[in-house]
């Protein structure tokens, strides 16, 4: 008369219509018993707050979880595969001039990204574009959701590189380093100064 787990599935029959069961049903004996028993159980809900990152109650994130995107500046060749496969067309290619040459890098708008993982799957040669386990992607203004190539590089440095070093994640295929970090740092500082001078951009 109780539900059992077996490989040859069988249906648990209903409880009979005898007098005892009818009285139990009329006074809701079994539902009340279940509820009282549940009160003695450990709570199944978790407390969640960003300060609990190192806490045991931090939400369980699966290894295969698809969060915000990261980009490897060493491996990306700008082949446009991710742009072509994206169902929402949220990945766009940005052209950057570095030392007189033009290079393409993907950038995306996180508000329209549906985390399907097709861009990650299609980048099977270079392993340049990857999903991280970051799920806190809300923002106060629209521009916070736009991830340029630099922000995606940062995500890689923060979240993918430690996993590669620890041997948990795949190893990115190293390509010739064509992008200088210092150059990007300069560009970023210039942009910040511009933003300070003209706050209307935001």
């Amino acid at each position: 008369m109780s539900v059992t787990l077996s490989r040859t599935p069988e249906v648990t029959p209903e409880r009979g219509n005898n007098i005892l069961n009818k009285i139990f049903r009329f006074f809701h004996v079994r539902p009340i018993y279940v509820v009282l028993r549940t009160m003695l159980r450990v709570p199944t809900t978790n407390l969640y707050h960003p300060i609990h990152v190192s806490h045991s109650q931090y939400p369980y994130v699966a290894e295969r979880y698809r969060g915000l995107l990261a980009l490897s500046e060493e491996a990306c060749t700008g082949c446009k595969k991710c742009e072509r496969i994206c169902p929402n067309k949220t990945i766009i290619m940005q052209t950057r001039e570095i030392n007189g040459k033009e290079y393409r890098f993907p950038a995306y708008f996180a508000g329209r990204c549906m985390k399907c993982g097709l861009c990650e799957e299609v980048c099977d040669r270079q392993f340049a574009i990857r999903h991280t386990d970051q799920f806190e992607d809300a923002g106060y203004i629209r521009e916070q959701l736009f991830y340029s190539a630099e922000r995606m590089f940062d995500m890689w440095e923060k979240h993918i590189q430690p996993r590669i070093d620890a041997g948990i994640a795949h190893v990115a295929v190293p390509d010739k380093r064509r992008v200088e970090k210092e150059y990007f740092a300069e560009q970023e500082e210039k942009r910040k100064e511009q933003d300070k001078a003209d706050p209307r951009i935001y």
Binding site: V3, P31, Y33, V34, T38
Partner: peptide
Amino acid sequence: TRLHQEFLDLLEESQIFR
């Protein structure tokens, strides 16, 4: 399976639901 038994007890064994 344990929780499934609770569903049955909570709903079916109440006269109001029936």
